[in-house]
Structures are given as structure tokens and as C-alpha cells.
């Protein structure tokens, strides 16, 4: 039952996303946010990281979460993904609370956390095969193409513990070439990447946004290539 349904949402999404952005005609007033955080408060171990944070992300937007260490960037991303529940406030995806629709949101989400979810004992190909079985069933050929795209041709069968940190990060990022998902939540995606890979990833993120996708990510790195609807969210402004 998942095989059939797993492929559908993205095409549907692309149409709705594109139509919604054409509807708005460049004017911001008519658009509706796909991802919305309302009055979000995050408290960790009796310390308030940020308070009453409001965030609206529309189709085609890229949001870079900035702020000093310990300002709650990762926490915000985890809240948006629904991995953590906020102390106060709510996160909505397509107008409904994320906690109430984990399954339907999961179909449209790619999450790459600080710890990327790779098994060191498995090869890149096995890792990606399992990940796609978990999220979006993909053919073996497309897994090979995704690994190709991140420059790991020839490393398909090497166990991940033998790869360098940068190469492991690339295996994780290969998911972005694999899954037809609209919302990308990426925690420090540029860590350990070399200059070429950074450039390539920036371009890939920009293309995703131009095609109507949403990207929310954290990094201390300054983007060279920004899509047209790029903005920064400075968490320091919401600190308690």
C-alpha cells in the first residue's frame, strides 16, 4: 500500500506549490504558509532558549536559521520536524498541527540531523536502500544515480566507517537527490564538505526552492548562491 502512495504526494505538491506561487504574482499578501510556527517557546533544562517565535515559510522559500552557539538552532529544527514538542506554541504543516499528522507530513519531509542516521557497518548503497525503503521506495538505479550525484561513484560497496567525515556527510546528502519531498530540514548540512561539494549543495538547494520546495537549515557558513526567496532567521532576536 505504501509503494503506490509513496510516489504520489510530491507530484501533487509540485502542482499545488507552483500554482500557489503563481497565484500570488510576486505579491506576498495572498500566499499562504505551508510551514508555520506560532508563538513557539522552547525551554531546555530550565533555560528558555527562545520565546514566542513566529515563523511562516511559504512554497519556494529558503530560511537560514542563524544565531550563536546554544541559541537553539537545532532545537528549532527539531521542533519544526515534530521530533520534540514545544514548551508552548504550535507547529503547523499545511494548516494542521504536525503532531496530529506525523504520517502525512513524513511523506513530504527529508530530515538530515546533526547525526545523520548512517550505519557505519553498512555500505552507502545499503544505507540509502534502507532509507528509501523507510521513506520513499526507490529503484536500485536511482540510488546509484544519487550516489553518483554526490560524487561517490566507486564507493557504493565500501562500509561507511571506511569513508571520511566529508564522504559520510555526502552519503547523507544523497537523500536529497533521491526523495521527491517538498520540505527539507537540514541541520548543519555544510559541515565537513569540501569547497566543490559546498558549491554543489548550494546550487541543489537553490534549485529545490526555485521549483517550489521549502528549505529550512542551520549553518554558520555564508551562502554564495541564494535563491530569490531567501531570508535569515536570527534566533538572537527571539531569545528570552
Amino acid at each position: 500500500m505504501y509503494n503506490a502512495a509513496g510516489k504520489r504526494p510530491f507530484t501533487v505538491f509540485l502542482i499545488t506549490a507552483v500554482s500557489s506561487s503563481t497565484l500570488c504574482n510576486g505579491g506576498r499578501a495572498v500566499t499562504f504558509p505551508l510551514l508555520e510556527a506560532r508563538a513557539l517557546t522552547c525551554e531546555r533544562d530550565q533555560r528558555v532558549l527562545f520565546e514566542h517565535l513566529d515563523l511562516r515559510v511559504e512554497a519556494g522559500e529558503m530560511v537560514q536559521v542563524a544565531g550563536p552557539n546554544g541559541s537553539g538552532k537545532t532545537s528549532l529544527l527539531r521542533l519544526l520536524a515534530g521530533l520534540m514538542s514545544p514548551t508552548a506554541g504550535e507547529v503547523q504543516w499545511r494548516g494542521r498541527a504536525v503532531t496530529a499528522q506525523r504520517h502525512s507530513m513524513a511523506r513530504e519531509l527529508v530530515w538530515i540531523g546533526h547525526r545523520a542516521g548512517l550505519k557505519e557497518l553498512l555500505s552507502p548503497e545499503e544505507n540509502l536502500a534502507w532509507w528509501s525503503a523507510l521513506h520513499h521506495p526507490a529503484a536500485r538505479r536511482s540510488i546509484g544515480e544519487a550516489l553518483d550525484a554526490v560524487g561517490l561513484r566507486g564507493f557504493e560497496d565500501v562500509p561507511c566507517y571506511m569513508l571520511s567525515a566529508g564522504q559520510q556527510r555526502r552519503v547523507a546528502l544523497a537523500r536529497l537527490y533521491l526523495a521527491p519531498s517538498s520540505l527539507w530540514l537540514l541541520d548543519e548540512p555544510f559541515t565537513a564538505l569540501d569547497r566543490d561539494a559546498v558549491e554543489q549543495l548550494e546550487a541543489h538547494l537553490a534549485i529545490h526552492c526555485e521549483r517550489g520546495g521549502l528549505v529550512v537549515f542551520t549553518t554558520h557558513h555564508r551562502l554564495e548562491k541564494q535563491p530569490s526567496r531567501y531570508r535569515q532567521l536570527d534566533l538572537a532576536a527571539w531569545a528570552a
Partner: peptide, 18 residues
């Protein structure tokens, strides 16, 4: 433990599978 430490569990939580 290893699934927790390398972040695999996060992927499990955010997958459409029950």
C-alpha cells in the same frame, strides 16, 4: 543504542511507517 547515537532513530520517527 547505536541507532540512537547515529541518528537512525530520528529517521524512524520521521518516516511514514508506523
Amino acid at each position: 543504542r547505536s541507532d540512537y547515537e547515529d541518528g537512525s532513530l530520528e529517521q524512524w520517527m520521521l518516516s511514514p511507517r508506523p
